[in-house]
Structure formats: structure tokens, C-alpha cells
Write a protein that binds this DNA or RNA. Structure first.
Lengths: 225, 225
DNA sequence: ATTTTTTTTAATGAATTCTTAACAACATGT
DNA sequence: ACATGTTGTTAAGAATTCATTAAAAAAAAT
């Protein structure tokens, strides 16, 4: 799982970014100043640091240089967060070792796509948690599902079933296929078993997400857009 | 729905491509020369243009440049159709702004997969199902049938029956064959059963799509073109 | 070993889908 | 036009399929 550390003195920014990062399936950490940021950095070893340039105490550039001088953090991605065009040229010019920068006000979608682009460039995997819909993030790694910011733990079978269905929203999975993929070919379970699991899922993730196609199987409904 | 514009002076090519594109669920348009092509382009705003290189009047390269210089068509995908290796190198070299090229003789399947690859690269949605006719899209994946933009869900037997008939428009399926394919060999049902299902289908997808061939069976009527 | 959680089964009822049967309408060949 | 066989139509009831519940069985955790 890809981890991201946010270092910014403004609480609002930290919260917004953390929220959006988590929604996209990243692990998010936040620190309010450079010193705390470096502490956290060493303990969580994030893949990417989002670093505010203007901060009281150590400013972003100092933090950036500090990170680059730490053994084992050479490959850590650093992305500056700059106030508007707060000396855009200067930022661009200082190859203090940052990989990218995003200027405020930050649009979460833009930031996320920039982050993904950076990860791709570095050949890192994108986050495992797939967002099927704005509201549902499935984290295979931890068998967690996040819905509207609320994380929940699902038992294995329920999780596998949901993951399967959500892997292709709109696609109708036939019961045979579901049995094969979730339960395996060798094990034999009654047909009602699927229904019961579907029911529990609906109970947990909300009605209207999984639709029954009578005579065929089930599908995860597409995003209404 | 993804739209594709074919610009080629050969009528056969236009027809074959249009037919195959429609069958795959694309909206297809065709023009016989560059000038008409540009006209059509402006009115239909296709997602992709298939462009013959060698044409009387404006050649493909000129058309390509013209498209690229039109405001609002920067993102329009352009794919060249080149005669064999008609200066392959030249085509490859000219970054007149094309996104891909396919050399003749064109194999529909190859072309379709190249088109889908281009759409994927651009992050555009692929067509959802297979179209039998301009008006009917059968999506086995989602067990849905789309008619004039209106999607509908059909129960299993009806869906299978329709899918069978529509798999070969114009072909007459004998009742025996229909029974075998849709109902299976082991199960035995009365003869009226087929009629009832046909009736329900006609009710849902509209009259005139399925024609009775008395004494033999049924067929899905061909596209009137 | 005991408790807790997860998974499966079984039973009932509701909803949809499928089939039948009876009769009407139609086409085709004589 | 008539007879004959084939198809269209309708509505009812059979059959299938699914939802739901509770409780037993199995697996994990404590």
C-alpha cells in the first residue's frame, strides 16, 4: 500500500488532503511542521511526501533538503505545495530534490492525478484500494472497505464477493462464476449460500449497490455519474 | 456512444468499415473525400477519424492537418489507413498528428482492436455491447438490451432467444435449432413456447425486428441500410 | 477449552419467469 | 374459396428462482 505524508501547517489542508488520499486508497499521515514531519517520515517511511513550502519553523525547502540527506530516503518522492504562483519560477528552479509541485488552491482531483503520475514515473504500484465509486474504496490488502469515510471490516467471503462484483461494475456475474471465483471449484456449497452473503453485504454497504439479475446472477451497479 | 468517421474514396471500404463499426456498437459515419469529411466532422464531432492516406483531391495528410488546426478537435483521434506498406516510413515519420495507422488490406477484427486500444489510451469508454443494427445493442456482459438509447432488462430465455436470432441477422433459424440452442437438448417444451417468447420479444424490442418464416422458423431482419 | 465470529444449511414465503392450453388468425396449396 | 396445418394471442397456473430468517456447523480467536 502506498503511503503519503502531508506536511503543512494549516489544519484544513492536512484534513482535506488526508481525506482525499484515503478515499483513493492511500495510507495518509500528516504533520503540522517540518520537525514533526521528519519524525513521522522516519517511522512510517512513506512513498511520497506532500510538502508545504511556506511554514513557520523549518520551511519546505529545508525539510526537502533534510529528507534528501537522510539515508534510505533517496527514492522518496517529494511534491511541493506552493501558494498560488508564489515564486513559481523559484520553486521550479530549486532542484532541492522535489519531483513535482502543485499550486494552491489545491484541487483534490488534480493532486491525485499528479500523485499517480509521479508514482507511475517511479515505477511504483498505484494504491491497491480500488475506488469503485466515489463512495466505496476496497482495500484488498487489509480486507477493509471504506464507505463515506467510514471504514469497515468484512469477513473473508463477504469481502471476496464484494471485491469480485465491484471489480467490474455493471457486469453481471453468473452464480457459477461467483461460486468458482469466491468459493473455488472443489468446494461445494448450496446455492442459498450466495444469497445469504449478498444479503449481508447489502446490509453493510447499503441497499442498491448490488442488484439481482434473476435467473443469471448479481451485479454491482454502475456509478450513476 | 463512441462515434467514428470514415473518410475513404472507395465505397467498398466505407461500407465494410461502417458495417463492422456498427456491429461493434460504434456510431459510424462515412465520407468519400476530404472536403466532405471535414464537413461531416464538424457536424458530428466524432471521437475518432479513420482516414485514407491516398485520396483524390485532399489527401489524408492534408485532411489530418486540417483537423488538427480546427478549434475543438485537438483531442479527436486520427488513424490512418495506408495501402500495404505505402511508404510506411513516411507515414510513421509524418507526425501530422495521427494517433495510429492501420495498413490495408484491413482486417476488421484487427482494426477494431486497434481502435479500442486507442480509446483506452485516451481514457474514452469503449462501446458497451454489440450492435446488430443501428438501433439495437445487445450487451451480453450486462445482460442488457439497448434500443434507441433506452436500456431494458430481458428475462433469461427471452434474452438468449434474441441473442441467438440477432447473432446472424437475416439467417433463418429453424424451430428445432432454436429449441436446441436456447432450451437445450434434454429439456422438452411444447411448440407454443417459442411463439410466446417471440411475442414477448416483439412487444419489447418492437415489431418488425423478428420475422416469422412459416413452416421453418424465425429470423432477425437485416439492416435496411 | 471456551467464546466469538464466520460460514453454511434449511425452511418458508414472495416474486419472477416459464410453460401450457385453448382458441383465434393466418398462410398456403389445391 | 376451402381445408389444413402452422403460428399468434391470451391468461392462468407451474415451476423456478430469490429473499429472508433462524439456527446449526465450522473456524478463529481468546
Amino acid at each position: 500500500m502506498v503511503s503519503v505524508l502531508v506536511i503543512d501547517d494549516e489544519e484544513d489542508i492536512r484534513d482535506i488532503l488526508s481525506y482525499n488520499l484515503k478515499k483513493e486508497g492511500f495510507n495518509a499521515y500528516a504533520a503540522e511542521n517540518g520537525e514533526k514531519g521528519l519524525e513521522l517520515l522516519k517511522s512510517v517511511h512513506p512513498d511520497l511526501v506532500l510538502l508545504d513550502v511556506m511554514m513557520p519553523g523549518m520551511d519546505g525547502i529545508e525539510v526537502c533538503e533534510a529528507i534528501r540527506n537522510l539515508a534510505g530516503f533517496e527514492r522518496t518522492l517529494i511534491c511541493f505545495l506552493t501558494a498560488r504562483s508564489e515564486d513559481y519560477s523559484q520553486i521550479a528552479g530549486l532542484d532541492a530534490g522535489a519531483d513535482d509541485y502543485v499550486s494552491k488552491p489545491i484541487k483534490p482531483k488534480v493532486l491525485i492525478s499528479r500523485i499517480k503520475a509521479m508514482l507511475r514515473r517511479k515505477g511504483m504500484a498505484e494504491p491497491e484500494g480500488k475506488s469503485t465509486d466515489g463512495r466505496l474504496v476496497i482495500n484488498r490488502d487489509k480486507y477493509l472497505v471504506e464507505r463515506n469515510g467510514e471504514v469497515m471490516h468484512l469477513p473473508r467471503k463477504e469481502f471476496e464477493l464484494l471485491a469480485l462484483l465491484a471489480s467490474r461494475p455493471g457486469h453481471v456475474f453468473e452464480r457459477d462464476i461467483i461460486l468458482e471465483k469466491v468459493w473455488g471449484t472443489d468446494i461445494v456449497v448450496g446455492d442459498r449460500t450466495i444469497d445469504v452473503h449478498v444479503r449481508k453485504l447489502r446490509e453493510k454497504i447499503g441497499e442498491g449497490m448490488i442488484k439481482t439479475i434473476k435467473g443469471i446472477g448479481y451485479k454491482f451497479v454502475e456509478q450513476s455519474a
